[in-house]
């Protein structure tokens, strides 16, 4: 497991890299006192009307649910497809190739069925 320490180290380095640049810029960048409405949120040059903290229809909510199905499928696929090459070879799994093939088709078929269902239910339309 010690190898994965490096992942942590590099996550820190990345954060520090960006953080250092921002701190450095804070030191060298000029500051001009606030005149007028410089600190307002940008809204095409107008005074902003209300805040952006509004009840917002998250258009991708249903997409996210369908996405979840396929992402979990991908996780299942990683180990399954990883050993596909070794099936029937010495040292590999000894399962009938036809059986595996049929199972793969069945598994993906179920997912495609879900996709078609979502499609017919007009889930895959934006807005």
């Amino acid at each position: 497991m010690p190898e994965y320490i490096l992942v942590g180290v590099f996550a820190l380095v990345g954060l520090m890299f960006a953080g250092a640049a921002m701190i450095f810029s804070r030191i060298v960048a000029p500051r001009f006192p606030n005149q007028g409405q410089k600190l307002e949120a940008y809204e095409s040059g107008e005074k902003p009307i209300g805040s952006a903290r509004i009840q917002f229809k998250i258009g991708y909510y249903l997409f996210a649910l369908v996405f979840l199905v396929f992402d979990v499928e991908a996780v299942f696929f990683f180990p399954t497809l990883g050993v596909l090459r070794s099936i029937g070879e010495p040292g590999g799994l000894s399962i009938s190739r036809i059986a595996i093939w049929a199972e793969l088709f069945f598994f993906i078929g179920v997912l495609v069925f879900a996709l078609v269902y979502a499609w017919r239910k007009k889930v895959l339309e934006w807005e």
Binding site: Y42, E43, S51, A52, F56, Y60, F63, F67, F70
Partner: peptide, 22 residues
Amino acid sequence: SNNKYSLLGSMRAGAQLFSYEL
């Protein structure tokens, strides 16, 4: 950012980025 443009942009980005990840 509390800005309407930013909110719209990030919502679109969310939908786009995870969709294409598949």
